[in-house]
Design a protein around this nucleic acid. Structure first.
Lengths: 246, 246
DNA sequence: GTGATTCTGTTCGCCAACACACATAAGCCA
DNA sequence: TGGCTTATGTGTGTTGGCGAACAGAATCAC
């Protein structure tokens, strides 16, 4: 994390791009624009027009709903297993939710027009996008149920695990305040839950950094939602040989 | 004319079908199968294979997530404004959620194979299905946020309103127990909230029947989620104006 | 190094929703 | 009509999360 890696990584670090046949990839690659994203960057604003779609490689993005009173909740996360901008393909030119950068990192963007053209060919790109859409729907649905039925501690475990799956290391750079705004709960709630997890030896943290120590333990403390989503992503997006999911 | 109660209504009472160009409709109509659905019928079981998709006309369907402990929550409702079976088009052959009949009524079903063929033509049918998918995503997202932030009473108001929108009358045939299982809360919670609404003169009910008296009042007691979803559905699915962007 | 800023820990009262238990009432039908 | 089933009402105690307020600790900027 502390490395000064400024050289662009490969677009193929994004699983969606990597799953495309070379023919499609050859068409798209010249138009993929390398980009670095900073924590907190707002990629899409609710109701805004979408000019680009994003394929994260090392960054993690987060889809948020913003309520009238300003409260927010994450409804889905997007890492290198996915992409941001599905709603363009669905025919709404705008996105209903805000997209922000949850973890700084790299990625690629593509003009929506080019994505649309490729999608409209009706080939493997389209089928892949649609499968990803289905996976996204499952993720959002599970979030809805999770919000209804599970405790903050369970949800924190779930969130840590799915974030971890998108990171190379086992350390997140994140304040509790930020985590709280992701889950749509109070900061104190996260302090308490994280304190419990630390006392149980599952994680350790210091100002703005959370390190996962006992991943299996986290899974035991998490609600079922983590595994449900993970399995569905695997089922829908493990394209042939690739078994590395999420 | 046969029995008034059992005579099939027109497929065009379903807004999705009604929005299709006649050319497409002519291809599909011969294969639409009229069907009546009883309260509680399970149309899709979680993880099951999908043989048909459904276009409700007077019935209302409900998508449920079922948790490991058996608890359920509705994640979206489907009336004559929509259809059931989107996940087929997305490439998962199975559905992740259970679909049940929430209000008995009529509708049409279509073999998935025929729907797929039409979808794969890439014409107006595909574009319509994709827009509906987007609307569904918005509905589910809003449910996630609503579950996090709003009270049972607000959610009940929201649910009553959106159910009402799918009904010809202002009376729902529904026990409180059933409503509770829709919202994923306790039956007592609904008793209490419904009692409040009745005392406020917004609804009246008796054993298994809920009548909405003051619709505007319900809207005032509801959370913002009702209107957000309604507006998005209008924006995405307003018939005729396929070109209506923004 | 020092002071300012930001993050984390903790407390208190409060309320919505929960689980459980049981009382009453409405409708069904024999 | 009366008895049975099912739906609804109510009460008690518990809990998880909220809001607000504040104290201490870690890091940053100068």
């Amino acid at each position: 994390m502390g490395n000064f890696k400024t050289a662009p990584n490969s677009p193929l670090q994004n699983h969606i791009l990597a799953a495309l046949p070379t023919e499609v990839l050859d068409r798209l690659t010249p138009h993929l624009i390398f980009t670095k994203m900073q924590l907190g960057d707002v990629l899409y604003e609710s109701g805004g027009l979408l000019q680009h779609v994003y394929f994260p490689t090392t960054s993690i993005l987060s889809l948020h709903y913003v309520m009238e009173n300003g409260a927010t909740s994450e409804i889905a996360g997007v890492g290198n297993e996915g992409m941001l901008g599905i709603s363009i393909l669905m025919g709404g030119n705008t996105t209903p939710s805000r997209a922000i950068v949850q973890t700084a990192g790299q990625g690629y963007l593509l003009k929506t027009k080019l994505l649309m053209e490729e999608f409209n060919r009706g080939g493997p790109m389209m089928r892949l996008m649609l499968r990803y859409t289905q996976a996204l729907i499952i993720q959002i649905s599970q979030t809805a149920v999770c919000n209804r039925h599970h405790t903050v501690e369970q949800q924190l475990c779930r969130w840590l695990l799915s974030t971890l799956d998108r990171l190379p290391s086992n350390e997140l750079t994140m304040t509790q305040e930020l985590v709280a705004s992701m889950l749509g709960v109070r900061r104190e709630g996260i302090t308490e839950a994280a304190g419990d997890l630390q006392r149980s030896g599952l994680i350790s943290y210091r100002r703005g950094h959370i390190t996962v120590i006992d991943r299996a333990g986290l899974e035991r403390h998490s609600c079922e939602c983590y595994n449900v989503v993970k399995n569905e992503f695997g089922r829908l997006l493990s394209n042939g040989q690739q078994h590395k999911v999420l």
